[in-house]
Design a protein around this nucleic acid. Structure first.
Lengths: 215, 215
DNA sequence: CGGGGCTTACTAACCGGTAAGTAAGTGTGG
DNA sequence: CCACACTTACTTACCGGTTAGTAAGCCCCG
């Protein structure tokens, strides 16, 4: 594969920042398609046309690269929000449904998330605390939205019901992603996610909800 | 009879069947705690006090060992059914809730399932077809149960709604397991699973469902 | 002309799998 | 009832391949 290293394809060598971004994008693809343990620094390096030592030059170690990949994913994930901060109340659930719809065309990122999340359950995995923290934050945000909407509608919630609902919403999104990744024809990610969230919310709030999104 | 001491095999070598079972149990622990790629044959072998070549003597290759581990998990998983075949109709959902309750005390098996399922999303993973097949069968069984219960109640389902509901039920179970594994204090596996399934079914069937299980 | 970006070269650790040897059991014919 | 043939259950040794990480040096750009 490394034929002639001779060639100056670009006018200048990419700047440090740009090169790092290239590597992060490549690492996302590699870790997403092969997992963290099975995806090697050599694989990542090959995708940007350098050697694995070149990658280490920028990130120091594989673990540090993973951490930056995870932060990078977060950045990309909220990119379409375009500055507007993460919504609350019923808009949060519309945002989740919209995200699922967008995800149906971003298989790579979804796969990276699924693989790393599953892998993080293994003992001492470098991503486990990141994933756990992420779940915790998400549960907090979503359960707050549940409480807000319930208050708005004068619905009283049982003890811990907001948290249970939040966990269920996250769970159904992750679980559907998994099934969709393994068999895209068997599961319509956007439709199934919307229907499931609607079911869960309707049951919790005791009345119909409107998740229609137009944009 | 009097002469031939039908001795308990304490000092003798374990029989083939027993040894294989020992190795399968060890492999379940290893793959569950470290994943398939990261868990080595040496790890498995050490747990039964032999070398990695000894493990290969019994199973031929690491891939074949994994396959038998997956079947082994299935066997253990339905063990509590005690001969009675997998139920249908509303009993199937009660069975799922019961399984979740039992799983809360079988962390190892749940972890193995979660890790291998997540890993299976990677390209060319030896377990991917097994997991995909498993999801497919489960969706089929559960969607049939949904249709049966709907017919029983004279509820008409929209096109593909039974399948969507089935996918959501599986998804919420898997997703909650993931969150529970990463933070057992934050999620009550049994309660959250029961509540989520009840929500989804209630929405699909347009009326209350009874998931109470006693045994 | 200096330093960052990168390569080449190397190391030490593992990995799964194979081959060959060995000790212990099992079956059987005389 | 036992000797001999054969099988089973491993072990030790080794192979080729892959891995992350280190060290040192080259080269191009500003």
């Amino acid at each position: 594969m490394a034929e002639t290293t001779e060639q100056a394809p670009k006018t200048t060598r990419p700047s440090r920042a740009r090169r790092r971004e290239e590597i992060l994008a490549a690492a996302t693809r590699v870790f997403g398609s092969k997992g963290y343990h099975q995806g090697s620094l050599g694989d990542v390096a090959a995708q940007v046309g350098i050697t694995h030592a070149g990658v280490l030059h920028h990130f120091g170690s594989k673990d540090k690269l993973l951490w930056e990949v995870l932060e990078y994913r977060d950045r990309v994930d909220v990119q379409h929000l375009e500055g507007k901060h993460i919504p609350g109340g019923m808009d949060l659930f519309r945002h989740l449904v919209l995200t699922a719809r967008l995800n149906a065309d971003r298989r790579g990122i979804v796969q990276a998330y699924a693989v790393l999340t599953g892998e993080s359950v293994t003992d001492g995995h470098p991503a486990s605390s990141w994933v756990a923290e992420r779940f915790s934050v998400l549960r907090g945000e979503i359960s707050q939205a549940v409480r807000d909407v319930a208050a708005e509608r004068d619905v009283s919630l049982r003890d811990g019901e907001a948290e249970r609902t939040a966990a269920a919403v996250i769970a159904v999104m992750d679980g559907l992603q998994l099934q969709w990744l393994l068999d895209p024809d068997a599961v319509d990610l956007a439709a199934a996610t919307a229907a499931a969230i609607e079911s869960i919310l309707t049951a919790t709030l005791g009345g119909p909800v409107d998740l229609v999104v137009e944009d």
